[in-house]
Amino acid sequence: MLATQYEGNKTFTVFEKEIEAPAAGEVRIKVAYVGVCGTDVHIYHGMMDKRVNIPETIGHEMSGVIDALGDGVTGYEVGDKVVVRPLDDRLAQPSDKGFNHVCEKLKFIGIDSPGAMQEYWNVPAFTLHKLKAETDLKLAALIEPLSVATHDVRMSGLKAGETAVVLGGGPIGLLVAMVAKETGADVIVSEVNETRIAKAKELGLDAVNPIKVDLIDYVRNKTENRLADVVFEVAGVQPALDTMTEVAGIRGRIVMVAIHGEKKPVDLFKFFWKELKLIGARVYEKEDYEKSIALITANEIPFEKMITDVQPLSNIQQVFGNIDSNPDGMKVLMDCQQ
Protein backbone atom coordinates (compact mmCIF):
# COMPACT_ATOMS: atom_id res chain seq x y z
CA MET A 1 0.00 0.00 0.00
CA LEU A 2 1.00 3.61 -0.52
CA ALA A 3 1.40 5.85 2.52
CA THR A 4 2.70 9.33 3.30
CA GLN A 5 4.57 10.78 6.24
CA TYR A 6 5.27 14.25 7.51
CA GLU A 7 9.01 14.35 8.19
CA GLY A 8 9.29 17.89 9.56
CA ASN A 9 10.79 20.92 7.82
CA LYS A 10 7.89 21.25 5.35
CA THR A 11 8.64 17.78 3.97
CA PHE A 12 6.43 14.81 3.16
CA THR A 13 7.60 11.43 1.91
CA VAL A 14 5.59 8.91 -0.09
CA PHE A 15 6.46 5.24 0.43
CA GLU A 16 5.14 1.70 0.23
CA LYS A 17 4.46 -0.50 3.23
CA GLU A 18 2.66 -3.74 4.03
CA ILE A 19 -1.10 -3.65 4.54
CA GLU A 20 -1.78 -4.42 8.21
CA ALA A 21 -4.61 -6.52 9.60
CA PRO A 22 -6.91 -4.57 11.96
CA ALA A 23 -6.46 -5.29 15.65
CA ALA A 24 -9.34 -6.33 17.89
CA GLY A 25 -11.93 -3.57 17.99
CA GLU A 26 -10.56 -1.94 14.84
CA VAL A 27 -11.56 -1.82 11.19
CA ARG A 28 -9.37 -1.36 8.15
CA ILE A 29 -10.64 1.34 5.82
CA LYS A 30 -9.80 1.63 2.14
CA VAL A 31 -9.47 5.41 2.17
CA ALA A 32 -11.19 7.19 -0.70
CA TYR A 33 -10.52 10.92 -0.15
CA VAL A 34 -8.83 13.04 2.51
CA GLY A 35 -9.36 16.78 2.78
CA VAL A 36 -6.44 19.05 3.63
CA CYS A 37 -7.35 20.94 6.80
CA GLY A 38 -5.96 24.19 8.12
CA THR A 39 -4.50 22.15 10.99
CA ASP A 40 -2.65 19.98 8.46
CA VAL A 41 -1.17 23.16 6.99
CA HIS A 42 -0.07 24.24 10.48
CA ILE A 43 1.64 20.85 10.85
CA TYR A 44 3.35 21.35 7.48
CA HIS A 45 4.65 24.73 8.69
CA GLY A 46 6.19 23.09 11.77
CA MET A 47 3.83 24.84 14.17
CA MET A 48 2.84 21.55 15.83
CA ASP A 49 6.18 19.70 15.84
CA LYS A 50 6.08 19.39 19.63
CA ARG A 51 2.75 17.58 19.42
CA VAL A 52 3.05 15.44 16.28
CA ASN A 53 5.10 12.25 16.65
CA ILE A 54 7.42 12.84 13.68
CA PRO A 55 7.56 11.04 11.29
CA GLU A 56 3.78 10.74 11.17
CA THR A 57 0.98 10.09 8.70
CA ILE A 58 -1.51 12.93 9.16
CA GLY A 59 -5.02 13.69 7.90
CA HIS A 60 -8.47 13.44 9.49
CA GLU A 61 -11.07 14.78 7.00
CA MET A 62 -11.80 11.56 5.16
CA SER A 63 -14.19 9.12 3.55
CA GLY A 64 -13.74 5.49 2.64
CA VAL A 65 -15.02 1.92 2.56
CA ILE A 66 -14.52 -0.77 5.20
CA ASP A 67 -12.03 -3.32 3.89
CA ALA A 68 -11.63 -5.64 6.90
CA LEU A 69 -13.03 -6.10 10.43
CA GLY A 70 -11.02 -6.83 13.55
CA ASP A 71 -12.19 -9.28 16.21
CA GLY A 72 -15.16 -8.13 18.21
CA VAL A 73 -16.40 -5.51 15.75
CA THR A 74 -20.15 -5.63 15.21
CA GLY A 75 -22.63 -3.44 13.38
CA TYR A 76 -20.43 -2.99 10.32
CA GLU A 77 -19.70 -5.04 7.23
CA VAL A 78 -16.96 -5.07 4.62
CA GLY A 79 -18.07 -2.72 1.86
CA ASP A 80 -19.82 -0.21 4.13
CA LYS A 81 -19.11 3.42 3.26
CA VAL A 82 -17.95 5.28 6.35
CA VAL A 83 -16.36 8.41 7.76
CA VAL A 84 -14.30 8.69 10.92
CA ARG A 85 -15.03 11.08 13.78
CA PRO A 86 -11.36 11.39 14.74
CA LEU A 87 -11.66 11.82 18.51
CA ASP A 88 -10.13 9.28 20.87
CA ASP A 89 -11.80 9.92 24.20
CA ARG A 90 -10.90 6.65 25.91
CA LEU A 91 -9.05 8.55 28.66
CA ALA A 92 -12.09 10.64 29.61
CA GLN A 93 -12.50 11.30 33.35
CA PRO A 94 -15.55 12.04 35.55
CA SER A 95 -14.25 15.61 35.81
CA ASP A 96 -14.98 16.01 32.08
CA LYS A 97 -18.70 15.94 33.02
CA GLY A 98 -19.55 13.67 30.08
CA PHE A 99 -18.41 16.17 27.45
CA ASN A 100 -15.89 13.74 26.03
CA HIS A 101 -15.33 15.74 22.84
CA VAL A 102 -13.47 18.31 24.94
CA CYS A 103 -12.14 16.00 27.65
CA GLU A 104 -8.84 16.97 29.23
CA LYS A 105 -6.94 14.00 27.81
CA LEU A 106 -8.60 13.92 24.38
CA LYS A 107 -6.43 12.60 21.55
CA PHE A 108 -7.09 13.80 18.03
CA ILE A 109 -6.57 11.02 15.50
CA GLY A 110 -4.51 12.21 12.55
CA ILE A 111 -2.58 14.62 14.78
CA ASP A 112 -1.76 12.76 17.98
CA SER A 113 -1.82 9.37 16.24
CA PRO A 114 -1.56 8.13 12.62
CA GLY A 115 -4.06 9.64 10.19
CA ALA A 116 -5.77 9.01 6.88
CA MET A 117 -3.30 10.13 4.20
CA GLN A 118 -2.61 6.56 3.13
CA GLU A 119 -4.36 3.94 1.01
CA TYR A 120 -5.53 1.84 3.96
CA TRP A 121 -6.07 3.03 7.52
CA ASN A 122 -6.76 1.02 10.68
CA VAL A 123 -8.96 2.87 13.19
CA PRO A 124 -11.02 2.03 16.30
CA ALA A 125 -14.54 1.04 15.29
CA PHE A 126 -16.06 3.43 17.84
CA THR A 127 -14.94 6.36 15.68
CA LEU A 128 -17.04 5.30 12.68
CA HIS A 129 -20.20 6.77 11.21
CA LYS A 130 -21.91 4.70 8.53
CA LEU A 131 -23.00 6.33 5.27
CA LYS A 132 -25.73 5.36 2.85
CA ALA A 133 -24.61 3.33 -0.15
CA GLU A 134 -25.46 6.14 -2.56
CA THR A 135 -23.32 8.73 -0.73
CA ASP A 136 -20.76 10.53 -2.90
CA LEU A 137 -17.41 9.84 -1.22
CA LYS A 138 -15.94 13.12 -2.47
CA LEU A 139 -18.68 15.05 -0.69
CA ALA A 140 -18.39 12.73 2.30
CA ALA A 141 -14.81 13.93 2.82
CA LEU A 142 -16.38 17.27 3.79
CA ILE A 143 -18.36 15.76 6.68
CA GLU A 144 -15.64 16.36 9.29
CA PRO A 145 -15.25 20.12 8.64
CA LEU A 146 -19.00 20.40 8.08
CA SER A 147 -19.48 18.91 11.53
CA VAL A 148 -17.41 21.74 12.98
CA ALA A 149 -19.92 24.08 11.37
CA THR A 150 -23.01 22.18 12.52
CA HIS A 151 -21.62 22.16 16.06
CA ASP A 152 -20.93 25.90 15.94
CA VAL A 153 -24.45 26.67 14.73
CA ARG A 154 -26.03 24.32 17.26
CA MET A 155 -24.06 25.91 20.10
CA SER A 156 -25.22 29.35 18.97
CA GLY A 157 -28.91 28.52 19.33
CA LEU A 158 -29.54 30.21 15.97
CA LYS A 159 -33.20 30.19 14.93
CA ALA A 160 -35.09 30.82 11.71
CA GLY A 161 -35.63 34.51 11.12
CA GLU A 162 -32.59 35.63 13.11
CA THR A 163 -29.60 37.39 11.56
CA ALA A 164 -26.16 35.80 11.68
CA VAL A 165 -22.90 37.49 10.75
CA VAL A 166 -19.94 35.27 9.92
CA LEU A 167 -16.59 37.00 10.31
CA GLY A 168 -14.25 35.17 7.94
CA GLY A 169 -15.03 33.52 4.62
CA GLY A 170 -12.53 30.67 4.58
CA PRO A 171 -13.61 27.01 4.32
CA ILE A 172 -15.01 26.78 7.87
CA GLY A 173 -16.58 30.23 7.68
CA LEU A 174 -18.46 29.40 4.50
CA LEU A 175 -19.58 26.03 5.89
CA VAL A 176 -20.86 27.82 9.01
CA ALA A 177 -22.69 30.30 6.77
CA MET A 178 -24.30 27.53 4.70
CA VAL A 179 -25.46 25.65 7.81
CA ALA A 180 -26.74 28.90 9.34
CA LYS A 181 -28.68 29.68 6.17
CA GLU A 182 -30.12 26.14 6.19
CA THR A 183 -31.67 26.89 9.60
CA GLY A 184 -33.67 29.70 8.04
CA ALA A 185 -31.52 32.56 9.31
CA ASP A 186 -30.47 35.62 7.32
CA VAL A 187 -26.71 35.32 6.90
CA ILE A 188 -24.05 37.90 6.09
CA VAL A 189 -20.41 36.91 5.49
CA SER A 190 -17.64 39.43 6.15
CA GLU A 191 -14.43 38.67 4.23
CA VAL A 192 -11.56 40.78 2.83
CA ASN A 193 -10.41 38.32 0.13
CA GLU A 194 -12.29 39.12 -3.10
CA THR A 195 -11.95 35.58 -4.45
CA ARG A 196 -13.56 34.21 -1.32
CA ILE A 197 -16.28 36.84 -1.50
CA ALA A 198 -17.01 35.66 -5.03
CA LYS A 199 -17.13 32.05 -3.79
CA ALA A 200 -19.56 33.03 -1.04
CA LYS A 201 -21.85 34.70 -3.58
CA GLU A 202 -21.56 31.64 -5.85
CA LEU A 203 -22.88 29.65 -2.88
CA GLY A 204 -25.86 31.98 -2.64
CA LEU A 205 -24.60 33.90 0.39
CA ASP A 206 -24.66 37.62 1.11
CA ALA A 207 -21.01 38.66 1.41
CA VAL A 208 -19.29 42.02 1.91
CA ASN A 209 -15.74 43.31 2.17
CA PRO A 210 -15.45 45.31 5.44
CA ILE A 211 -12.51 47.25 4.00
CA LYS A 212 -14.76 48.63 1.24
CA VAL A 213 -18.12 48.66 3.02
CA ASP A 214 -18.89 49.70 6.61
CA LEU A 215 -20.03 46.34 7.96
CA ILE A 216 -21.85 47.77 10.98
CA ASP A 217 -23.91 50.13 8.81
CA TYR A 218 -24.55 47.34 6.31
CA VAL A 219 -25.94 45.07 9.02
CA ARG A 220 -27.92 47.93 10.58
CA ASN A 221 -29.59 48.59 7.24
CA LYS A 222 -30.35 44.90 6.75
CA THR A 223 -31.88 44.51 10.23
CA GLU A 224 -33.73 47.79 10.81
CA ASN A 225 -30.98 48.76 13.27
CA ARG A 226 -31.25 45.57 15.35
CA LEU A 227 -27.78 44.31 14.31
CA ALA A 228 -26.86 40.61 14.53
CA ASP A 229 -28.50 38.04 16.75
CA VAL A 230 -25.50 35.74 16.35
CA VAL A 231 -21.90 36.48 15.36
CA PHE A 232 -19.48 33.71 14.41
CA GLU A 233 -15.84 34.78 14.83
CA VAL A 234 -14.01 32.54 12.37
CA ALA A 235 -11.25 34.83 11.11
CA GLY A 236 -8.97 34.62 14.13
CA VAL A 237 -7.56 38.15 13.73
CA GLN A 238 -7.78 41.23 15.94
CA PRO A 239 -10.02 43.25 13.57
CA ALA A 240 -12.62 40.47 13.81
CA LEU A 241 -12.45 40.56 17.62
CA ASP A 242 -12.94 44.33 17.47
CA THR A 243 -15.90 43.94 15.09
CA MET A 244 -17.73 41.09 16.83
CA THR A 245 -18.88 43.17 19.79
CA GLU A 246 -19.85 46.07 17.53
CA VAL A 247 -21.95 44.09 15.06
CA ALA A 248 -23.77 42.07 17.73
CA GLY A 249 -27.13 43.51 18.76
CA ILE A 250 -28.72 43.56 22.21
CA ARG A 251 -28.43 40.13 23.85
CA GLY A 252 -26.52 38.89 20.84
CA ARG A 253 -24.56 35.64 21.02
CA ILE A 254 -20.95 35.54 19.86
CA VAL A 255 -19.54 32.12 18.99
CA MET A 256 -15.76 31.81 19.16
CA VAL A 257 -14.89 29.43 16.32
CA ALA A 258 -11.34 30.62 15.59
CA ILE A 259 -8.44 29.39 17.71
CA HIS A 260 -6.54 32.18 19.47
CA GLY A 261 -3.28 30.83 20.86
CA GLU A 262 -2.53 34.02 22.77
CA LYS A 263 -4.57 36.44 24.88
CA LYS A 264 -6.19 39.16 22.79
CA PRO A 265 -7.94 42.46 23.66
CA VAL A 266 -11.76 42.25 23.68
CA ASP A 267 -14.21 45.09 24.40
CA LEU A 268 -15.77 43.71 27.59
CA PHE A 269 -17.79 46.88 28.12
CA LYS A 270 -19.97 45.87 25.15
CA PHE A 271 -20.80 42.60 26.94
CA PHE A 272 -22.11 44.62 29.88
CA TRP A 273 -23.81 47.31 27.81
CA LYS A 274 -25.68 45.00 25.42
CA GLU A 275 -25.90 41.86 27.62
CA LEU A 276 -23.91 39.85 25.12
CA LYS A 277 -22.99 36.19 25.47
CA LEU A 278 -19.66 34.64 24.43
CA ILE A 279 -19.88 30.96 23.51
CA GLY A 280 -16.91 28.66 23.03
CA ALA A 281 -17.22 25.93 20.40
CA ARG A 282 -14.67 23.16 19.91
CA VAL A 283 -14.76 20.29 17.37
CA TYR A 284 -18.07 18.34 17.42
CA GLU A 285 -20.21 15.69 19.01
CA LYS A 286 -21.96 12.61 17.60
CA GLU A 287 -25.17 14.49 16.82
CA ASP A 288 -23.22 17.07 14.81
CA TYR A 289 -21.77 14.31 12.63
CA GLU A 290 -25.22 12.83 12.10
CA LYS A 291 -26.57 16.26 11.12
CA SER A 292 -23.71 16.72 8.64
CA ILE A 293 -24.25 13.28 7.14
CA ALA A 294 -27.94 14.13 6.68
CA LEU A 295 -27.03 17.42 4.94
CA ILE A 296 -24.56 15.72 2.61
CA THR A 297 -27.00 12.89 1.86
CA ALA A 298 -29.86 15.28 1.11
CA ASN A 299 -27.65 16.97 -1.54
CA GLU A 300 -29.68 20.18 -1.38
CA ILE A 301 -26.78 22.52 -0.54
CA PRO A 302 -24.02 23.01 -3.17
CA PHE A 303 -21.21 21.60 -1.04
CA GLU A 304 -19.44 20.38 -4.18
CA LYS A 305 -18.52 24.01 -4.92
CA MET A 306 -16.29 23.97 -1.85
CA ILE A 307 -13.97 21.41 -3.50
CA THR A 308 -11.45 23.40 -5.53
CA ASP A 309 -8.99 20.62 -6.42
CA VAL A 310 -8.49 16.84 -6.24
CA GLN A 311 -4.95 15.45 -6.37
CA PRO A 312 -3.45 11.95 -6.13
CA LEU A 313 -1.89 11.00 -2.81
CA SER A 314 1.53 10.82 -4.47
CA ASN A 315 1.38 14.60 -5.07
CA ILE A 316 1.21 15.45 -1.37
CA GLN A 317 4.37 17.59 -1.31
CA GLN A 318 3.18 19.64 -4.27
CA VAL A 319 -0.31 20.01 -2.78
CA PHE A 320 0.95 21.56 0.46
CA GLY A 321 3.33 23.81 -1.42
CA ASN A 322 0.53 25.01 -3.67
CA ILE A 323 -1.74 25.77 -0.70
CA ASP A 324 0.93 28.12 0.61
CA SER A 325 1.08 29.94 -2.70
CA ASN A 326 -2.69 29.93 -3.34
CA PRO A 327 -4.56 31.29 -0.30
CA ASP A 328 -7.71 31.70 -2.41
CA GLY A 329 -8.37 27.95 -2.57
CA MET A 330 -11.11 26.34 -0.51
CA LYS A 331 -10.92 22.58 -0.04
CA VAL A 332 -8.29 20.36 -1.64
CA LEU A 333 -8.91 16.62 -1.56
CA MET A 334 -6.28 13.90 -1.76
CA ASP A 335 -7.39 10.88 -3.80
CA CYS A 336 -5.91 8.00 -1.81
CA GLN A 337 -6.57 5.36 -4.48
CA GLN A 338 -4.69 7.05 -7.36
Rank of each mutant, 00 (worst) to 15 (best):
L2C: 00
L2D: 02
A3L: 05
T4K: 00
Y6R: 02
V14L: 11
E26L: 04
R28L: 15
R28D: 01
Y33V: 08
G35P: 02
T39Q: 05
D40S: 07
M48H: 10
K50G: 15
I54T: 09
I58R: 03
E61W: 05
E61T: 05
M62K: 01
G70N: 04
G72F: 08
G75N: 07
G79Q: 10
G79W: 10
K97W: 12
F99T: 12
H101P: 08
G110I: 00
I111P: 01
A116F: 07
N122P: 01
P124S: 11
T127K: 06
L128G: 11
T135Y: 00
S147G: 02
T150F: 04
G157H: 06
G157D: 02
L158V: 10
T163W: 03
A164R: 01
A164T: 00
L167N: 11
L167Y: 08
A177G: 03
A180E: 02
E182R: 15
E182H: 15
E182F: 07
G184L: 10
V189Q: 04
V189E: 05
E194Q: 15
K199V: 15
I211H: 12
I211V: 13
K212H: 11
D214F: 01
N221I: 01
K222P: 05
K222S: 14
T223R: 05
R226C: 10
L227F: 04
A228D: 07
A228W: 08
V237H: 13
Q238W: 09
P239E: 11
P239N: 10
L241N: 13
T243M: 15
M256G: 05
A258T: 04
K264P: 00
V266G: 08
F271C: 12
K274R: 13
L278F: 15
L278Q: 12
V283P: 00
K286V: 15
Y289M: 12
Y289W: 13
E290K: 14
T297S: 15
A298N: 01
E300W: 02
E300Q: 14
P302I: 10
E304L: 01
K305C: 08
P312D: 06
S314V: 14
I316W: 04
I316E: 03
V319E: 06
D328F: 11
G329C: 13
G329H: 12
V332C: 09
M334L: 15
D335P: 05
